[in-house]
Structure formats: structure tokens, C-alpha cells
Design a protein around this nucleic acid. Structure first.
Lengths: 249, 249
DNA sequence: GCGGGATGCTGATCCAAATCAGCCCGGGGG
DNA sequence: CCCCCGGGCTGATTTGGATCAGCATCCCGC
């Protein structure tokens, strides 16, 4: 593990994330870097994936943030999840013909295109990596479920606290956050669409959390003033984020 | 397809459901019926799968209804989804070590135990069936996402209407419903826990929908008084339920 | 036949969050 | 230079749904 070439390979967010749970062999790391072959850039207004699209293409985020959402008749939208560096997006639409949601960048994004062929070849040649990818997908699903619980049964403040803690945990995996806080490009409108609140209310909730000395979210920076207190307020149990790795192989 | 033995095999809810999307060969149908080898019964109070459990076992529902849910500190719970005959449950916990939610029967249930070994052998020997199973899993995920949208951005009445229409569509696939309605064993408390409402409010919403002449839900029977009107009221778009089948193989 | 536990139903009240309306600030473009 | 526009911020008012309280019914065990 001291070979500098390997260290370089390990440096993509995807590799960092997967390495946190499965010990990847040099061959696996090579395959990961191979997935990053076809780099593309997306500007903020653009669409990476859209409802009804029929290409079978997925992406791995290399840098920047994106969000996946559904639009309702009536114009409102619900953000299902945010994608951070190292995350897959559109994984499901590689295997199936059509996508049922949209994905769009929140910041300028660099992403690598992954085709069905790429994915199948990874699955065939490096089963250990395949298992890691499945693990990541299953973790994403667990996050959607937790998000559902947020919307169904938690108060606005709990939701917000829970959400910020989850983001923090995810970003730490790729080295973009620590216990102190992280840089966050989300506007209050985006938070509102994700948390099922109005933007006005998001503002008030953030103020309350700040006044209680728990978190400060200002100028694109989230700062945990009292991490443990926030965990308490959100009744945040990170079990759903670090469930055990895959057993296959 | 006129061989009576094949017709019998086709008669499990799982086979019916999968056949609606992938044309299953006789060998596939045999493999399906093979999954039903280890039949088990569960009574209403029992736990089929529970948070933190470490067995790698999944089930296919043969008869009866179940629900998967998460309990929050504070005692409230959020039902993530209902499982109907023909549905898998705990599929994710076969591949990963621990389950992050509970599954319990709503009515007496007959289910077939499926081990990791069974599943892997199906994947290896009948790829067409494997693709169908993946398709079903992906459809379940799409339903969770739609449920999330429900909780985040739809009013109580829209949620209820949407939910009843979705249930109807799912039950039709296994021959347990038609355009007129279906038998539904869910109590108003269960509806409340699924829709993120209080039981009291569920009652009122059901009354409103009834008084508007849209649906009647009484005595364990859901009757669509005005199907199209309900679709309208729910802005129900079933695209997410019948996305295209898998392309693999 | 009786008592008790679910479940359905309803009115009165309360509260969290939406909506409406408007302010301030900073940055980019004409 | 100024204007506009997106983002953050705030008060006043309204509203959807929760909570509390209580009633009726049915079913089941004894």
C-alpha cells in the first residue's frame, strides 16, 4: 500500500468511499479508476438525467453536488436525495429502460459516464468491487428510507438536524467534512424542497437551531456548535449508514 | 402454454406478477416454484424480520399482507411499505448482514423462506428470472420514492387517494383487485402510520373522499365510486409502476 | 350474558407550518 | 452607475392536521 501509483488511484472519492467498507485490492482500484475514463462536465442549469429518458447511462460524481427530484403537477417538487462526490447516480436507470426522476447539478459538476457494458464487465471481472458497488447502492436505498421517515414522523427541526448530520457523515467518508462542520452549497430553497418544508420555514428552523447553540449554517458553511446536542435533538442513529458490508464473495 | 402442469406452476402470485413483465420460460416457472419450497406460517403478532437481525433470510409472500416499518425513539412508527402476495421481503437483508427495519404480518401470512444460496443459484441458472427479480426490486424502490413524494408534497387527501390507487394497481397484478375495488385488511391506524397522519385524521379524510363520491373504504372493502375522478384528485400517474422491463439478457 | 379490548367515528381545541407580504444585502449586467 | 434579481430574513395571518376527549360497535373469552 505504499506504492505511490496505488495511492494516486485511491484518491478518487469513489475509491475512498468504497475503501471505507471493503478492502479493495490493487486490481479493484484499477477498475475503479477505469470507471472514470469518460469524464464530462455539467453546468448548473443542465439536466444530467430526466424523467422518461431512455439512454442507459449512469454517472459517478467526481466533483460537485447534484440532486435527484420528482416534479409534481402543480409545479412543486420533492428532492429525493443529494449526490455528493463519490456517489453513483442513475444506477437504476442503467439496468432499466427509463428513469422516473430527474437529476441536475447544484454546483458545476464533473462526472464520469458509466455504461451498462462497463458495469457488467466490472461485475464479471472484479466481484469484490461489484459487491462494494452493490453495498453502496443498498446504502443509498437505506438513506431514502430514512428520508421517508423524516418526512413522515419528524418535526421540522428534527428533520433539519437529522439531515445535516447525515450529510456530514456522508461527506466525511470522502474527506470533505469533519466533526466541526463542512462547506455546503445548498440554498434554503433546496433544503425546503428536500425536507418537505417552505423556504420561509427552513429559515426559521435554522435560526432556532443556531439560537439554541446547536448548528450554524451561514454563508455556505455548516458549523456544528454542539455536535452531541444536535445528535440528541435529531435522535440521530447512524446505524442505517454503516450497516455491515456485503457477504458475497 | 397449455400444459396443465405449467399452468399450475404459473399460479403462484410471484409467478403472476413476474409474468406480467417478463415472458417466463417453463424452466423459469419451475425455478419460481422451487423458491416456494420452504413454506412457513406467521401469526399476526409475530416478527418476520427485525431491526438488527443477522440471519440472511428473505421471504416471498404466498398469501396474506405484511408491512415493513421503522420505530422512532418516542414510540411512533413510520410504515415504509406494505407487502402483498407475490412480493419479496427482506431482499436487501439477504445480501447484507443486518436489517435496518422490521417486517410484521398484518393478516395471517404464508411465506416461503429464500436463502442467499437459493437466490444466487437462481441468478446463476436462470438469468431471465434473475432479471425479473431485479426488475421487481427496482419497482419496489420506485414505490418507496413515490411514497416519499407523498409525504413531502401531497395533502392528506391526495396521499390517501394516491395510496389506494397504488394498492389497487399492485393487487391487480396478482388478480386480487379490479377497477371496481378490492378487499383491504388495513385498519385506520395502519393507514395513519403509513401516510404520516394521525388515525383521527385518516378517518376524516376517508369520510371526505366518500362524501365527494370518489372512494368508499368500509368494512375491509375499498370501492372506487369514481375511478377517474380519484385518479384526477390524486394526480396519479402510474408511470413509476410500469416502467419498462430489464434489458439484461 | 357480561366485560373488556379493538376499531371506527365525531366534536372542540390547539399548534406547527404554510402563505402572504415585504425588507435588506450583494453581485452581475446593461 | 444603477438596476435588477437571487438569496436570506422577518412579521402577520391562515390553515391543515394533531391532540384530547368521548361515544358506539363488534368480537372474543369467560
Amino acid at each position: 500500500m505504499t506504492d505511490p501509483a496505488i495511492l494516486t488511484l485511491q484518491d478518487s472519492p469513489l475509491a475512498r468511499k468504497l475503501s471505507a467498507f471493503v478492502r479493495l485490492a490493487p486490481a479493484d482500484l484499477l477498475a475503479v479508476s477505469d470507471l472514470h475514463r469518460r469524464r464530462r462536465k455539467f453546468a448548473v442549469g443542465s439536466e444530467m438525467i430526466y424523467q422518461g429518458q431512455t439512454d442507459q447511462v449512469a454517472f459517478v460524481l467526481a466533483s460537485g453536488w447534484a440532486c435527484s427530484y420528482k416534479i409534481l403537477p402543480g409545479g412543486t417538487r420533492q428532492i429525493v436525495d443529494f449526490q455528493l462526490p463519490g456517489d453513483f447516480l442513475g444506477l437504476r436507470s442503467v439496468l432499466f429502460r427509463t428513469s422516473d426522476h430527474n437529476v441536475e447539478p447544484i454546483t458545476p459538476v464533473q462526472a464520469s459516464e458509466v455504461t451498462q457494458r462497463d458495469l457488467l464487465s466490472v461485475f464479471a471481472s472484479t466481484p469484490r468491487l461489484a459487491a462494494a458497488v452493490l453495498w453502496a447502492a443498498s446504502r443509498d436505498e437505506a438513506m431514502v428510507v430514512e428520508h421517508l421517515v423524516d418526512l413522515g414522523r419528524r418535526s421540522a427541526a428534527e428533520r433539519m438536524a437529522h439531515f445535516l448530520l447525515e450529510l456530514n457523515a456522508r461527506l466525511r467518508l470522502v474527506g470533505m467534512a469533519d466533526r466541526k462542520g463542512f462547506a455546503c452549497p445548498l440554498s434554503q430553497y433546496l433544503l425546503a424542497d428536500a425536507l418537505g418544508l417552505s423556504a420561509v420555514h427552513v429559515n426559521r428552523v435554522l435560526r432556532e437551531l443556531r439560537e439554541e447553540g446547536l448548528v450554524t449554517f451561514q454563508k455556505g458553511q455548516v458549523t456544528f456548535d454542539d455536535y452531541d446536542g444536535l445528535v440528541e435533538a435529531a435522535s440521530f442513529d447512524r446505524a442505517y449508514l454503516d450497516h455491515d458490508g456485503p457477504l458475497l464473495i
